[in-house]
Simulated assay, not measured.
Amino acid sequence: MRARALWAVVAAAGGGERFGSDLPKQYQVLHGRSVLGWSLQAVRGAAPLQGLALVLAPGDEHWRALDEPALAGVIACRGGTTRQASVANGLAALGEAGAGTDDLVLVHDAARPCVRTADIRRLIERAGDSPDGGLLAAPVRDTLKRAAGEQVQATVPRGGLWQAFTPQLFPFDRLRRALAAAAEQPVTDEAEAMERAGARPRLVEGAVDNIKLTYASDLALAAAILAAREAGAEEAP
């Protein structure tokens, strides 16, 4: 029987309009290297990969100029007009490279450079045997308010609420089919596509410093997180 292989898709096709820079956020310099380089390094360092698809915006050639060892051997492919289309294109590229229906695939946002490799390993260990897959997440800790314009409408009970992160891990063919079924209905992450297909992905708690870079000011926070880890000052999740 063929061994179950692990593959990865790193989504780097976003334009980053809210970031406020002509250079996409995945190519910004962060603590001595590119944002994309940090993200690729974390994913590749978690476990041996059979292959990694890097999903890029049409016409994006910035990645070719990067001096990043983690880019070696990536399968570059073009993103789509939506997130699920981009990830679906990445899965198609992995399928052409030999990914099997029962294999596993990690999907990670390039804009999450602070993810901990140890968290990715824990995700693989805890969700790798689940037919519904799983995702890194953390219980919501802050008080949540539902708004009407700029006024509070209600306080939302946070019990049972989790903040979703990436990577997310799913069986290759189940994710491919879930994304295809959701092609006409936008989803915010792969887990939502799987949920619509009837799956109940496993929540695997990860560190809350797995932040997503959305605004230019987020770079300073990400740099502080990475610098603290380098100095051995990181806190446990």
Results as ranks from 00 to 15, higher is better:
131 P>G: 04
101 T>G: 13
76 A>W: 00
115 V>R: 00
84 Q>R: 11
113 P>V: 14
73 G>C: 08
112 R>V: 14
75 I>H: 08
103 D>G: 11
73 G>P: 03
48 P>K: 09
112 R>N: 14
114 C>N: 12
106 L>Q: 11
84 Q>S: 10
114 C>R: 02
110 A>M: 02
48 P>W: 04
106 L>V: 12
120 I>P: 08
124 I>D: 07
123 L>Y: 07
95 G>I: 07
70 A>W: 04
138 A>M: 05
120 I>M: 13
124 I>C: 14
85 A>V: 13
131 P>H: 08
65 A>G: 12
127 A>C: 10
77 C>S: 07
123 L>F: 11
65 A>T: 08
84 Q>V: 10
50 Q>R: 12
97 A>P: 04
116 R>M: 05
52 L>N: 01
113 P>Q: 13
110 A>L: 08
64 R>S: 01
61 E>G: 02
86 S>C: 08
87 V>G: 00
51 G>A: 10
108 H>E: 15
47 A>L: 06
84 Q>L: 13
94 L>C: 12
126 R>N: 10
47 A>I: 04
108 H>T: 12
73 G>K: 02
102 D>Q: 15
91 L>D: 02
134 G>W: 02
129 D>M: 10
61 E>P: 00
103 D>S: 13
63 W>K: 02
62 H>A: 04
88 A>T: 09
87 V>S: 05
115 V>M: 06
86 S>P: 05
95 G>V: 12
122 R>S: 11
117 T>C: 13
127 A>P: 04
